[in-house]
Amino acid sequence: MDYSITKFLWTLLGLFIVLNWGMLMSSTMRRIGARVAGRYGIPWYQPWIDLVKLYSLRTHLTHGTMFYIGPVFRLMGGVGIFLFLPMVYGNPHWSNYSFSGDLVLILYFQFFGMLGMALGAGEGGQPFSAIGISRGLSQFATIEVPMTLAVISIAIQYQTLSISDIVAAQQGGFMTWTLWTNPLATGAAMLSLLGAFGHSPFNLVKAPNEIPIGPPTEYHGTFLGVLRTNGAILHVAEAALFMNLFFGGAGSWFELIIKTFLIYFWSVFVGTVFPRFRIEQSVRWFLKVPTILGILAIIIFL
C-alpha cells in the first residue's frame, strides 16, 4: 500500500508513456488500413499535430455544464482503467494502484466514461448525438454480457478478482496463459473486445458518413482534444487489461507494446475485412455466439 508522491510520479510517467504509445498505435493502425486500400495514409506523427491543433483553436462554445463535464468523465474512464491496472508485472514502479482496485472496478470504469459522454453529448442537443448515444448504450449493454461472463469465468477459475493475482497465476510459461487454460472465456472476451474498440463492423456508434460522427458531433477544439487524448489512453488500457487477463501480462514495456499492439490489431484486422453492422444486427450478434461461449466457460467450472 504505497501512496507516496514517488509512486504518484511513476504512475504519471506511465500515463505519459501509455498516451504516446496509444497515439503512435492509432496512427500505425490507420497507416495499415491505408496500405490495405493502396494508399500511404497519414504520417505517423499526425495524431500529435491534430491534438496540438485541437487545443489551439480559438472558438469554444458550450451548451451547458454537462457539456463541459462530459469529456472529463470520458477521460476519467480511460485514466481510471489505467490507474488500477498493473502495466508491467512484478515491477513496483509500473503496477500503478492495482492493489487498491480489482476487476469489478475496472468493468465499472469501462461504462463510466460512456455514461458521462452520453449526458454531455445529450446536452449538446444535436439529434445525431442522440442517435449515436442510443446506439452506443444499447450496443455496449450487449458487449458487457459476454465480457462479464468471461470475467466471472476466470474469477471462478483463479478464485480471485485481483488482476495482479490473475497475472501472477499465469506466470510460468506460454502454456499457463488463460488463453490455453480457459479458451472459452478468452474466446467470449476477444469477441466482445471487437465491440469495445468500436472498429468496423461495430463502429455504428460513431458511424462516419451516416450519422455525422455520433455522440461527439457538437464537440470541437479542446473538448474534442480531451476526447482524443482519452481515446489514445483507453485503447492501450483496454488492450493491457485483456493482456493481463488472458495473455499472461507483460514482463517489460517491450512485451507490453508487442502484446497490446497485437490485441488492438485483432480488432483492426476484423474491421478491415468486414463492413459495418446495423444496430439490431450487432446487438443480436453479441447475444449469440459470444454469450453462448461465455455461458459455457462458466458451466465447465461449476
Binding site: R39, P43, P208, N209, T217, Y219, L224
Partner: peptide, 18 residues
C-alpha cells in the same frame, strides 16, 4: 490511392464543429 490527401495532413470531417 492516386491522390491520397491524407499524406499532407488533410482529412475529411462530417460536422462543421470539427
Amino acid at each position: 490511392p492516386r491522390f491520397d490527401m491524407f499524406r499532407y495532413g488533410v482529412q475529411m470531417r462530417a460536422t462543421p464543429r470539427q
